[in-house]
């Protein structure tokens, strides 16, 4: 169903005229239901962890949003590449929309990570490879968004942002690699999720978390995309109107 929704946006050449449609409304309802199921399993039905205690429940939203922050980056790079290659505005706006949503998810990941770290490790922050690269991801995304949000022509903004967006995934990979080397050369990785075995209801809760958070991500990207599309539309129409007005002034005098 979600693919259909994305497909319907793609299919119409003129783009969306509002941010909501029947299919996104259904998607929104499904997302809310999924979030409800996540709350039920994550907060009520699943047990507390023997080591992490109640704090383990943060993981059910933290891990999926961390994964989706990377998915968002990936979409931004793909969109930027296709924009540079084909000059497709659709892909450029997708890159922009997913970068913004990815930044939100990265911030959410960092905040939930810190809230989890405080009861579990006793500190909000440690210079662990995973934490550091997530923070760097945030800064790289903010750089992209700064370029995309420049007060300049659409062409200028879009093209420059696309170059930054194209390099986003290579940068993230190099930063991750270097941060991992940096930390592992000095000390053993402080946190390892691979070691912690997770099964039964907890595994199911995490699975529910992945589905619910992915639906939230898709819903947000679609709506952000439509808002961005409408913004550009208003800009273009505003320009046309201004030109028409100036022309009309010329006729009167």
């Amino acid at each position: 169903m979600t693919t259909e929704t994305v497909g319907s946006v793609e299919a119409s050449d003129n783009g969306p005229t509002s941010t909501g449609s029947r299919s996104t409304m259904i998607l929104g309802i499904v997302t809310l239901v999924a979030l409800g199921v996540l709350v039920l399993f994550g907060l009520i039905l699943s047990p507390a962890d023997e080591n992490q205690g109640e704090a383990v429940r943060i993981m059910y939203v933290h891990v999926p949003s961390a994964t989706l922050s990377y998915v968002g980056c990936f979409l931004t790079t793909i969109g930027s590449a296709i924009y540079l290659w084909r000059k497709s505005r659709w892909w450029e706006l997708l890159a922009y929309a997913s970068a913004e949503v990815a930044a939100l998810f990265t911030a959410f990941t960092l905040i939930t990570g810190m809230l989890w770290g405080r009861p579990t490790w006793g500190v909000f922050w440690i210079w662990d490879a995973r934490l550091t690269s997530e923070a760097m991801l945030m800064l790289l995304l903010l750089g992209y968004l700064a370029v995309r949000g420049l007060a300049a022509d659409y062409q200028v903004r879009a093209k420059r942002a696309a170059i930054v967006g194209l390099l986003l995934v290579p940068n993230v990979l190099i930063v991750r690699e270097s941060v991992q080397w940096w930390r592992t050369l000095h000390q053993k990785p402080t946190l390892s999720l691979a070691g912690a075995h997770i099964e039964g209801l907890m595994l199911f809760s995490l699975f529910t978390g992945f589905i619910a958070i992915t639906l939230v991500f898709i819903w947000m990207v679609i709506h952000r995309f439509r808002v961005a599309w409408l913004e550009e539309q208003v800009d273009l129409e505003g320009l046309d109107e201004a030109i028409a007005e100036r022309r009309a002034e010329g006729v009167v005098s």
Partner: peptide, 22 residues
Amino acid sequence: VAAGLRVRETLLPLLLLPVLAP
């Protein structure tokens, strides 16, 4: 990327320094 913009002095460090972290 930052050239010719009014905000170039502040934009370039924001873009470049995270990239140069490795």
